[in-house]
């Protein structure tokens, strides 16, 4: 991978991932504030973070598909903007979150020199993204929690991110490549010749 310039198809497909996940983010916000909050809010609130990883999926999935520098930041940020356009309870703060989470995912692939796109690298990126998001949450929202809850929260967010974004992103890319939808991307060319 020496060509770092984004082609039109890179931009459009990254944007489509972002828009699709923007809608998912929006729906996930309702799930978070509604059922997840109601079920775990009355028992052990940090447990609600088990669903958290989906918010960080674009920061791992987009770089795996597009394989260009900036894919994690761009996609996570635009997804956050789209969810704000649809109306979330976090307003413009989702932009700062999108930027920070995307940058954390980006760092994971930067450390691989934008050359490694395997499961290990996805897990590294997912860990960074999850830890960043959990840290921001503790700072903004859960400063009042007891210390053991804070630790549990970070652990659950990171575990969820590893599962949904790290492992999920890796296998989702493979499944998409299998359908031929990624034929215009290097990530889709690992298929057998047909």
């Amino acid at each position: 991978m020496t060509n770092y310039r984004w082609r039109t198809v890179d931009i459009v497909v990254a944007s489509i991932l972002a828009v699709a996940f923007g809608v998912v983010f929006w729906a996930w916000g309702l799930l978070w504030n509604g059922p997840a909050g109601a079920i775990f809010g009355s028992t052990f609130p940090p447990a609600a973070a088990a669903i958290y990883g989906v918010w960080l999926l674009p920061a791992v999935l987009a770089p795996l598909i597009i394989r260009k520098p900036g894919a994690a930041i761009y996609t996570e940020l635009v997804a956050a903007i789209v969810s704000a356009l649809l109306g979330t309870s976090w307003g413009i703060s989702v932009l700062w979150y999108g930027l920070a989470q995307g940058a954390a995912g980006e760092l994971g692939f930067l450390l691989g020199g934008y050359r490694r796109w395997n499961l290990g690298q996805s897990l590294v990126a997912a860990t960074f993204a999850g830890a960043t998001a959990a840290g921001l949450d503790l700072f903004y929202y859960y400063g009042d929690w007891q210390f053991s809850w804070k630790i549990a929260y970070v652990a659950i967010v990171v575990a969820s991110t590893l599962l949904f974004a790290g492992v999920g992103g890796h296998f989702l890319t493979k499944a998409l490549a299998g359908t031929g939808a990624l034929d215009r991307f290097p990530s889709g060319r690992s298929r057998d010749l047909v």
Partner: peptide, 23 residues
């Protein structure tokens, strides 16, 4: 009316803190 997701979020915050605040 357009802000209903936010109202829902606010209600959850109040409920969860009322039950589980450390302080």
């Amino acid at each position: 009316r357009r802000g209903w997701p936010a109202l829902l979020g606010a209600a959850t915050v109040v409920l969860s803190l009322a039950l589980f605040a450390a302080d």
